[in-house]
Amino acid sequence: MARKKVKIELEDSEGSKYSIVVEGNLTREKVLKVFEMMNLLDDSSNEKYDAEEPNSLGERIMHLIEEEFPYGEFTSSQVLEAYEDRYNEPIKLSMVSTYLARFTSKGILARNRSGREWRYKRVLLKH
């Protein structure tokens, strides 16, 4: 089996640059842990959440996706469930789907068909 190699580069809000190379027997979980560690170094993402909770529905959904599904795939049903748990208010699946479609068209999310449902994933932009 060929050795897998992943290189991750990040620049934080202060201009510091981080680069990490992970090579060997990589699993999805190991790579996600590295991303989580790198995210802790990115002060700009943490500053966003120190502010008050987002007000609009779209902001709430995006905020929820960033916190609950930072690197993995998710469905509109999973977002709906997380939204209702977090904000303790009902929301229609069609509303969630509409916002996910908007985020996809803006390039914030990517989506793939999996059986009868769409699976979404955040698009990670290089700094």
Results as ranks from 00 to 15, higher is better:
residue 38 M to H: 02
residue 88 N to T: 05
residue 79 V to I: 11
residue 100 L to A: 14
residue 109 L to M: 03
residue 26 L to M: 01
residue 48 K to F: 06
residue 105 S to V: 04
residue 114 S to C: 05
residue 28 R to C: 14
residue 90 P to M: 02
residue 78 Q to R: 09
residue 86 R to H: 12
residue 67 E to T: 15
residue 73 E to R: 04
residue 100 L to R: 14
residue 63 H to S: 13
residue 78 Q to T: 09
residue 36 E to W: 08
residue 78 Q to C: 09
residue 56 S to Q: 01
residue 70 P to T: 05
residue 74 F to V: 06
residue 85 D to A: 09
residue 99 Y to E: 08
residue 31 V to G: 00
residue 35 F to N: 03
residue 74 F to A: 07
residue 111 R to A: 05
residue 98 T to K: 15
residue 87 Y to R: 01
residue 38 M to Y: 00
residue 54 P to Q: 04
residue 114 S to N: 06
residue 70 P to K: 04
residue 46 N to Y: 11
residue 89 E to S: 11
residue 63 H to F: 08
residue 31 V to N: 00
residue 65 I to D: 05
residue 59 E to Q: 10
residue 54 P to F: 03
residue 72 G to W: 02
residue 54 P to C: 08
residue 43 D to C: 13
residue 116 R to Y: 09
residue 107 G to V: 00
residue 88 N to Q: 13
residue 69 F to T: 04
residue 91 I to D: 00
residue 79 V to L: 11
residue 42 D to Q: 02
residue 47 E to R: 15
residue 111 R to D: 06
residue 41 L to K: 00
residue 78 Q to V: 11
residue 110 A to Q: 09
residue 103 F to H: 10
residue 44 S to G: 14
residue 29 E to K: 08
residue 42 D to C: 04
residue 117 E to Y: 11
residue 47 E to Y: 15
residue 58 G to C: 03
residue 77 S to H: 11
residue 77 S to C: 06
residue 51 A to S: 15
residue 69 F to E: 06
residue 109 L to D: 02
residue 84 E to C: 01
residue 107 G to K: 00
residue 30 K to T: 02
residue 88 N to G: 11
residue 103 F to L: 11
residue 74 F to E: 05
residue 60 R to P: 01
residue 113 R to S: 07
residue 45 S to Y: 07
residue 23 E to T: 13
residue 62 M to R: 14
residue 45 S to D: 08
residue 82 A to Y: 07
residue 98 T to H: 15
residue 35 F to R: 05
residue 76 S to R: 12
residue 64 L to P: 05
residue 86 R to D: 10
residue 118 W to I: 01
residue 66 E to H: 04
residue 74 F to Y: 08
residue 89 E to V: 10
residue 109 L to S: 01
residue 75 T to Q: 06
residue 74 F to T: 08
residue 58 G to Y: 01
residue 40 L to D: 12
residue 84 E to P: 00
residue 76 S to C: 13
residue 57 L to Y: 01
residue 49 Y to I: 11
residue 59 E to C: 04
residue 86 R to I: 13
residue 37 M to K: 14
residue 56 S to L: 00
residue 116 R to Q: 13
residue 47 E to P: 08
residue 114 S to H: 06
residue 116 R to N: 14
residue 25 N to Y: 13
residue 108 I to V: 12
residue 105 S to F: 04
residue 28 R to A: 14
residue 117 E to I: 13
